[in-house]
């Protein structure tokens, strides 16, 4: 519970109870839930008519249609089920950058913890994956307080290190994913946009719902340092010398172009993309995001 108390405040837990998290695609669950299931069920929400097939439940025959058209058709209804969500946390070294606010990984942990808490409240199953150059840790989806505590523990223990390779991570997540799930990726996306989009797009192409939450520090999008500066790469340790005054405008342009490329690339795969600046209150920012998503 120590990890929970660190990651999730009482205000955040209270705010999570007012929120809902849905998959935007049809998922596969085995319990009743709030998400559209890939299966047809017996709910009150009519889905479609279908030609009668031998073995179909006669209770679902639409006698009125039969009376009018002399054809046997059955009625199908939507099935609502719970979802499997994997909270994928980018644990590459760049996530360890901390500006004036908290570090990006810390912010991402809080958000992921709040989202896990919400999923647990909704009886959805949630898992965890730590991503860097590969999937360094994976907790299969489940639910329950014990599972939540385990997830918190793993999140806290996932320290930022290594480089980012979402392409490799996406392929590995695809292998590990069982049913059609929702992947919520917390990442700063400091990688070539094409590779990142390709890796996460694979998940989406296989029927999974993918939501990329772009965790970024606004100070990273601007070079505010005076004078000549050596920038040490948090992922590789490489030093790059530059005069921020000289590069500022060009750097801003590169940042804008990178962000736009991410957005366009992910949208082209049907992947949802949303920015999460670390300067905001994490619970408020996530709550607003989920409210908008509804």
């Amino acid at each position: 519970m120590t990890a929970r108390s660190n990651l999730l405040t009482a205000e955040a837990a209270a705010r999570a109870k007012e929120l809902e998290f849905f998959a935007r695609t049809r998922v596969e669950g085995f319990l009743k839930g709030q998400n559209w299931s890939r299966r047809k069920g017996a709910s009150t929400e009519f889905l479609q008519h279908r030609a009668y097939m031998p073995g179909d439940d006669l209770r679902r025959l639409d006698w009125r249609v039969f009376a009018r058209t002399d054809r046997l058709v059955t009625r199908e209804y939507e099935e609502f089920t719970n979802l499997d969500a994997v909270l994928a946390l980018d644990t590459s070294g760049s996530m360890g950058y901390a500006g004036e606010a908290m570090s990006k990984i810390e912010f991402a942990r809080h958000c992921a913890a709040m989202l896990a808490y919400l999923l647990n409240l909704q009886n959805d199953r949630f898992g965890f994956a730590a991503l860097s150059a590969r999937v360094t840790d994976f907790l299969a989806p489940s639910n329950g307080k014990r599972h939540l505590a385990e997830l918190f523990r793993r999140m806290v223990s996932a320290a930022p290190a290594g480089e980012t390779d979402m392409g490799a991570c996406g392929a590995e997540l695809l292998r590990r994913a069982g049913r059609k799930s929702v992947f919520v990726v917390f990442s700063d996306c400091f990688q070539e946009p094409a590779g990142l989009c390709r890796g996460l797009g694979m998940l989406r192409q296989q029927g999974h719902d993918v939501l990329v939450l772009h965790v970024f520090d606004p100070s990273e999008t601007d070079l505010v340092f005076p004078g000549f500066t050596l920038f040490r790469d948090l992922e590789t340790g490489q030093l790059d010398g530059a005069d921020p005054m000289e590069l500022r405008e060009a750097y801003r342009d590169v940042c804008r172009a990178h962000s736009q490329a991410l957005k366009d690339g992910l949208n082209s795969y049907g992947v949802e993309f949303a920015p999460l600046p670390v300067t905001a209150e994490w619970d408020v920012a996530l709550a607003e995001l989920l409210m908008r998503r509804r």
Partner: peptide, 28 residues
């Protein structure tokens, strides 16, 4: 002085920085 007193800062967005430097370094 600025060249002499090089300030070292940890930087997460080195990927973007290097993208910028790749286009600017020759003329800088």
């Amino acid at each position: 002085l600025l060249r002499r007193r090089k300030r070292e800062v940890p930087w997460g967005a080195s990927y973007l920085l290097r993208l910028t430097l790749a286009t600017r370094r020759k003329a800088s």
